[in-house]
């Protein structure tokens, strides 16, 4: 039936490759027309900033514009590497994200396995629906809740400490507590939401595998370990790679809101430094360079992890 010549969407026998490609494009000009605005948007708002990144190697002067500002090579990068803040920023950025990966990444997996083991379907649904709720609270409201919840005056945690005869602790003013609070509140807010994908993957595991394991006398724990976990391993690997994909940027808005002068020592990360020094103080070239350093490190990490995963777990993004 495909012999209908000139029907749109069906290419006639190509005479030469080039002319048939041109025809294929010509016949679908309206598809390109749809794409036109989105492509212009991508060029302007995604590739435009990449083009603008050249100010990292220049002394950007707003009056002269991006093109006419003077080239200075790696001066800004060097200044950053030698600055007093460099090691503190790098350590805070890396440690917050590393600890997040270590503690916050496995919990949704655990939650999904747990939900999967609940026999009572209604209770299982209830656990899921309730743990999703905090995901929809905005960052601002979330940090507001933290302030109130941990407040030395009337915050439930300090009320509890005082009930046991302790002194109230100003948690958010203490650098030593910052990372713990940041990561545990992230877990509270996101574990349910992040478990959705694992729960979906678990429901796709072949039930015969469980039956077979049961026949062989495997306990419930052993079945989780030998059937459930291997069943969702590919999903775990993909999500791990994606997490590493924004390793250096995680939680920037929340950190910014939780920051105060007293906890700066452990809350000052690269992205917040770029905001305060770049946007608030106007050091555009310097902070563009810092932001670029951040993105490049991030991209390298992603490529490395992806390569590693492809070799070891035979799962990868590309």
């Amino acid at each position: 039936m495909k012999s209908t010549v000139n029907a749109p969407g069906v290419a006639p026998r190509p005479k030469s490759r080039r002319s048939s490609l041109m025809k294929a494009i010509g016949r679908r000009y309206d598809l390109y027309l749809m794409l036109l605005i989105p492509i212009v948007w991508y060029v302007v708002f995604q590739y435009g900033p990449m083009y603008g990144l050249q100010i990292a190697f220049k002394n950007f002067n707003p009056a002269k514009g991006i093109l006419d500002s003077k080239w200075v090579g790696f001066e800004h990068f060097q200044r950053f590497f030698e600055s007093y803040y460099f090691w503190r920023l790098l350590w805070n950025t890396v440690s917050i994200n590393l600890f997040s990966l270590l503690f916050a990444f496995p919990i949704p997996i655990f939650l999904a396995l747990l939900v999967n083991e609940i026999r009572n379907k209604a209770f299982s649904k209830m656990v899921q629906n309730i743990t999703y709720i905090p995901h929809f609270i905005s960052v601002v409201a979330m940090v507001g809740m933290l302030l109130l919840f941990l407040s030395p005056r009337g915050g439930p945690l300090n009320t509890l400490i005082q009930a046991f005869g302790g002194q109230p602790v100003r948690f958010l003013d203490l650098p030593g507590w910052f990372k713990t609070i940041f990561i545990s509140s992230n877990i509270w807010q996101n574990m349910g939401w992040q478990s959705i994908i694992y729960i979906a993957a678990l429901s796709g595991v072949n039930p015969q595998l469980y039956e077979a394991a049961k026949m062989d006398g495997a306990s419930r724990l052993r079945r989780i370990w030998h059937v459930s976990l291997p069943g969702i391993l590919p999903v775990i690997v993909i999500l791990l790679i994606l997490d590493v994909g924004h390793f250096m940027n995680v939680g920037f808005e929340k950190i910014l809101l939780m920051q105060n002068n007293l906890n700066m020592e452990s809350s000052d990360v690269i992205s917040t430094f770029v905001y305060t020094t770049g946007i608030l103080k106007g050091e555009f070239s310097y902070t563009a360079a810092i932001g670029m350093f951040n993105s490049v490190v991030n991209l390298m990490l992603l490529v490395l992890v992806n390569r590693f995963a492809r070799k070891k777990a035979e799962t990868s993004l590309w």
């Binding site: 900033p49 083009y51 990144l53 100010i55």
Partner: peptide
């Protein structure tokens, strides 16, 4: 050409100009 366009679009998920150039734009 959709493969090429898709590649250029997906790339922006993993590398971007960042805060400052976007702000200036």
């Amino acid at each position: 050409g959709r493969g090429g366009i898709m590649f250029l679009i997906t790339l922006t998920m993993f590398f971007s100009g960042g805060l400052i150039p976007t702000y200036l734009l």
